[in-house]
């Protein structure tokens, strides 16, 4: 491995360590900043949330932390894909599990989610076929930063 690649790898490692994303719950009553590892860097609770009771507070905070963590993981995937190329990023997905965007590509809300509109969490998936459309990684502008 040559010096340039070592430097680029170290730079990528540093950048991935600093990534965090801020997400507001769909109900607007909780905002969380989280790292891709699920560390809560900041948490804001709207006073109105506390009037909904302890169970609602716990559920909304849990969901918001998950959404912020997923957003941070997705940002890490995007940053990694920019540095290493889509092909390698997809290889990483096949090992580590889908990026959050791909995992919630067609979110289907069923039943009665007590805290509104929180999409399902990430799940591992089977290995991808060889002919995957790699451009799909960047199709959703929402995730691109």
């Amino acid at each position: 491995m040559n010096e340039d690649r070592l430097r680029a790898t170290e730079q990528l490692r540093r950048e991935l360590k600093t990534i965090a994303e801020t997400v507001e719950h769909p109900n607007g009553l909780c905002t969380v900043t989280a790292s891709p590892r699920g560390e809560i860097r900041a948490l804001h609770l709207h006073p109105a949330l506390l009037t909904q009771g302890a169970q609602a507070v716990g559920q909304v905070v849990t969901e918001t932390v998950r959404l912020a963590t997923d957003a941070a993981v997705q940002r890490s995937f995007n940053r990694m894909a920019l540095a290493l190329g889509d092909g390698l990023a997809i290889d990483v997905e096949s090992i580590a599990g889908d990026s959050p965007f791909r995992a919630t590509w067609n979110p289907v809300v069923t039943g009665e989610p007590p805290a509104e509109q929180a999409p399902p969490g990430r799940e591992r998936r089977a290995p991808l076929p060889d002919d995957l459309d790699e451009d799909a990684f960047f199709e959703n502008r929402l995730w691109l930063r």
Binding site: A34, R37, G38, H44, L45, H46, P47, L49, L50, G53, A54, Q55, V57, G58, V61, T62, V65, R66, A68, T69, D70, G121
Partner: peptide, 19 residues
């Protein structure tokens, strides 16, 4: 390495206020 799977708060904790 991931988000917490469950966060629960007690009814009395609400007296702490949002901050």
């Amino acid at each position: 390495g991931g988000a917490p799977s469950q966060i629960t708060v007690s009814p009395s904790s609400l007296r702490m206020g949002p901050h």
